[in-house]
Design a protein around this nucleic acid. Sequence first.
DNA 1: GTCTATACGTCGATAGAC
DNA 2: GTCTATCGACGTATAGAC
Lengths: 217, 217
Amino acid sequence: MPYRRTPAVQARIDAQRTAVVEAGLGLLAEHGYAGCTMAAVAARAGIATGSVYRHFPSKAELSVELFRTVVGREVAAVSEAAGLAAHRTCAERVVAVIETFASRALKSPRLAYALLAEPVDPAVDAERLVFRRAFRDVFASLIAAGVESGELPPQDARLTASALVGAGAEALVGPLTGPLTEGSGAETAGEAVGPGTVPALVTFTLRALGVPDAHHA
Amino acid sequence: MPYRRTPAVQARIDAQRTAVVEAGLGLLAEHGYAGCTMAAVAARAGIATGSVYRHFPSKAELSVELFRTVVGREVAAVSEAAGLAAHRTCAERVVAVIETFASRALKSPRLAYALLAEPVDPAVDAERLVFRRAFRDVFASLIAAGVESGELPPQDARLTASALVGAGAEALVGPLTGPLTEGSGAETAGEAVGPGTVPALVTFTLRALGVPDAHHA
DNA sequence: GTCTATACGTCGATAGAC
DNA sequence: GTCTATCGACGTATAGAC
């Protein structure tokens, strides 16, 4: 008779895995990947260090899972923002995406820096490339629609989209790297970090898109 | 009498170190960091694998040295381009930098991808951040001058500069990742990869800067 | 699940400089 | 004779194939 995992045991294992991920997410938000040592994650999850390897074969895989989880939330938030602005112009939908992305990043600076630029592991780097392509495609379809309708001047939608993704990410890294004051309460005060960053980025975006009246400074 | 390294021996050691770096640069340009295994570098340099560790304590340190060497060349090329355009408008100087950077990247796609985006090692990632800040500062001073003189509309020069750095890098990653055809001869044919990429990027840049007449498409 | 291949980093041995 | 630079094979870890 082979060993069979009972539902109760399986549930406990699943709960433990969830606890590991939750612990990792918490540490990631507070101290970035630098704080996500296997020992720290295990301690916060209330298990032994070695037990983490029951769920993830390596630190790199855990890092990737945390990355995908958090960035998945951001994709959802951004998609929702684009959806809510569906009745507006293409440029305004792009702006809605940028504003949502940037303001959320600035509210969680340490987390945003970890996702955008913190040197971590080649596996996470590879995942960054994947998600950047995804964001690019979102922008590209919006821009292509704008060009199609004549709202935006003719342009290579993919290239503009790529450039906007890179611009948004890089523009945020600056304000994010300066104040790595983790307990500054910026997460709850809203917009305490880099005042004026979002409007400036919006202006940049509108101009780059070639919107005729870019008077949003 | 303690052992003293004679000049002849020292010269031989220095030459060997140079050979290692040269071998690494060649492999980097042909196959990216993926081709820069310690064994391959040693073989091309004509020494034993273990001897590489006489000059570099780890692969990461060698990777960083290669990165700094190549990017240093790019910084020099870009600086020269900015200098040659010193008599022109600020926007044109920014464009000169972008054009130089982008066209050089497109002529050596594999190398450019390795420097810009290839997942490698956290140490190289950290170096990327350093050099991006350097490029940002170059743009920032040009833009600040343009705003000062009234050539460009009022804006946060640092933020625009960061955004342009990110935009340029990200816009190139796309065209670079597709054709990783290394022996395609694109290095000598000039501009065989991503036709139209540079003009499109220039248009994007001019619009983003807020140049009044951005009719350069 | 096993087995092979690849690659980093180390080590004892050797040849040669001092 | 002593110390050192170099070699190349080995240990270990990991990823992929079968």
